[in-house]
Amino acid sequence: MKLWLLVVALLSLFLAGCASLELVQPWERETLADPIMQLEPDPSEAAFDEHILSTREGSAGGYGVAGGGCGCN
């Protein structure tokens, strides 16, 4: 229950913050389009990292990296 409250609170703050923002115009997006500003610049690396970490740690998920399971030890 606490988790859902946290998620809702974060989401509300996020959306409330967005509501007061000025829109970034297309001609202002040069830096956002730079490869080093992408949320996932290297999807293959992200998938490799997720694979290693989820087989070494008890937590997994959240970063949107899809894939099948494995019996990796």
């Binding site: 949320l39 997994a60 959240g62």
Partner: peptide, 22 residues
């Protein structure tokens, strides 16, 4: 199931928030 919001905050800042339930 996953849900995410991505927002360009300024010309130099972008943010995303997401939740996954498995």
């Amino acid at each position: 199931v996953g849900l995410s919001f991505t927002q360009a905050l300024t010309p130099w800042t972008i943010a995303a928030i997401g939740h996954e339930y498995t």
